[in-house]
Amino acid sequence: MMKKLKSRLRNQKGESIAEVLVAVLLSAVGLMMLATMISATSKMVIRSKTLTKEYVEQNNLLVEKGSSTRTGTVEIKLVDPLTDIETDIKLYDDGNYEEESASTAIPVLYYINNKIGNVSVTSYKKGSAS
């Protein structure tokens, strides 16, 4: 037993300094890469969270139609299913019949959520700017 221990202590076999250095370098590069990736992902997730929060807040306004940002007009056309030709259509006469058809354009208020990149979400309802 003592003999075996002594031979192990006297054993000259081992790893060269070069081998150890390469191993340390490899490990360091690997760990740095992992740290960078985790850091980037963390930033990405935080940004995504912030964006989502802002987006949802804006969407709540969109649902409540609380903050009109733009005005415009909507037209409703009758389409011939065979030729795909669109013709003007008036949905309803609110007052008395007029000989000349009133405009078919319906004024609308747009509500826009452009909190995510270049994709904007638009909702609208009938109405005009006061």
């Binding site: 909507v74 409703i76 056309k77 389409v79």
Partner: peptide, 9 residues
């Protein structure tokens, strides 16, 4: 078929 069209802002 009715088509709802937007003239834009």
């Amino acid at each position: 078929v009715l088509r709802v069209l937007h003239a834009g802002s």
